[in-house]
Design a protein around this nucleic acid. Structure first.
Lengths: 245, 245
DNA sequence: TACACTATCAGAGTCAGACTGTCAAGAATT
DNA sequence: AATTCTTGACAGTCTGACTCTGATAGTGTA
């Protein structure tokens, strides 16, 4: 079977053409004959590879899903820090869209509006994000990183909904051309959300209160926890050193 | 023309049937003959009222839009407080979905995935939310309520994207049946987002930074540090005095 | 009552486009 | 060369959007 290469490239050509056409038209407005012309592959062959037009639409997410998603999945279990893991998941999710920013959001929207898609949750990247984030948030609540009263489902919806909304409306009217990419916005965004659900400072204050005997230990803990802004940490550091001297 | 009533009820019957069927199927899977049977109105008459099947789909948002949306629009200019105005906009947006929670999110998704809809931004409620929120955020930044470096577009995407995401996935697998409604979740959600962009926290950081002399004072401050700003300054002031004594 | 006018409908018909089946040509494999 | 697989051209089926026509029934008017 040495024609794997050829076969694959033909299938790829169909899907690339389909991706382009589905993005610029609606699902029902895009015709197979158009995709046939665009890809240079006959209609019959398209039906050879994809049983129905809908199957062709559903094959696209797997194509969009870049290899780095797999990398992320491999790396994920090794990130102990809950927030770090959430960041990695979101980053993989954003990069998935970003890598095909002209098409993916629009095509994904068509997929989402399809009942079959909604029922099966067929997209690996979406599954990863949806389940992975939920697990992280729950773990964070369990281990005290996040507040007990944080609503895991709400937080997940904030994280995923915002990313999706940004991409869907990225090229729309009322959205300016921006110098920033969505990847650039990820960290400020994540920080905004996480700062809203981290255990409150006064709760931390209580724990600190119980465990700490002197101000030195507090300073160390502070540095480790990185609760405070950079400027403050430096001040604590400097103070500690001068104390020991 | 005394048959306005009759005419209107017929049109309504068509749209109600269409709403139900578009929600349970895809746009392309829903057939006019089906809507004809469901509504008890002949196909020919459906085409009398709505030129095309797509027109019928696009007529639905106007039907979904509840009257209270108009009330909100009237009230809006009288709410001086920026955050209050944002809350009102979001509430009207949420209630739009909530009022037809079985259908509206799904149908709206189909609308959004339609190019025509994306280009025209045709839904009054979406227009209100999109433009209104942006104005509020900008005003908040201008008058010092929100931080100068807050990204208005990002904040708007957080607010609208989350609401949309919640409704779209409300009936999906992996989302539990919940006792809370989305309206109930609005205030905690909004508070989470707003607390991340209010000016107060930054200023806190700065004041703390300036006033600290040693690790001891830092520890005391931390214990006292509750996120609310007014109480903080008072307590810090008090503590400082007692130190000096 | 007769007449005109409108809303509605059934049914027949057009047409585009998804999908199938067939066969022939060519490429790869044996 | 023979065989098998892949591909494409083409013809054809079928479904569903949309149109047209003429009938019916209700309503208002002379």
């Amino acid at each position: 079977m040495a024609d794997h290469v050829k076969t694959k490239s033909r299938k790829d050509r169909i899907m690339e053409a389909a991706l382009r056409i589905f993005a610029e038209k609606t699902f029902q407005d895009a015709t197979i004959s158009e995709i046939s012309k665009e890809s240079g592959v006959s209609e019959a062959t398209i039906y050879e590879y994809f049983g129905t037009k809908e199957d062709l639409l559903f094959a696209i997410p797997e194509k969009i899903t870049t290899d780095n998603l797999k990398d992320y999945q491999l790396v994920l279990p090794f990130i102990k820090d809950v927030e770090g893991r959430m960041r990695a998941i979101l980053l993989s999710y954003v990069q998935l869209y970003q890598s095909n920013s002209h098409y993916s959001a629009l095509v994904l929207l068509q997929l989402m509006s399809n009942k079959r898609f909604r029922q099966t949750d067929a997209h690996a990247a979406i599954r990863l994000a949806a389940h992975g984030l939920l697990d992280c948030i729950r773990e964070g609540i369990a281990n005290g990183t996040f507040r007990k009263d944080a609503d895991a489902y709400l937080i997940r919806s904030i994280l995923m909904g915002t990313i999706e909304h940004l991409f869907i409306h990225w090229h729309m009217q009322g959205m300016p051309k921006r110098e920033k990419t969505i990847v650039d916005m990820l960290d400020p965004f994540l920080e905004l959300v996480l700062s809203g659900i981290r255990t409150k400072r006064d709760e931390q204050g209580l724990t600190l209160n119980l465990k700490l005997e002197d101000a030195n230990a507090l300073a160390q803990l502070l540095r480790l926890n990185e609760i405070l802004p950079e400027s403050l940490k430096q001040k604590v550091n400097g103070r500690k050193k001068s104390n020991k001297q």
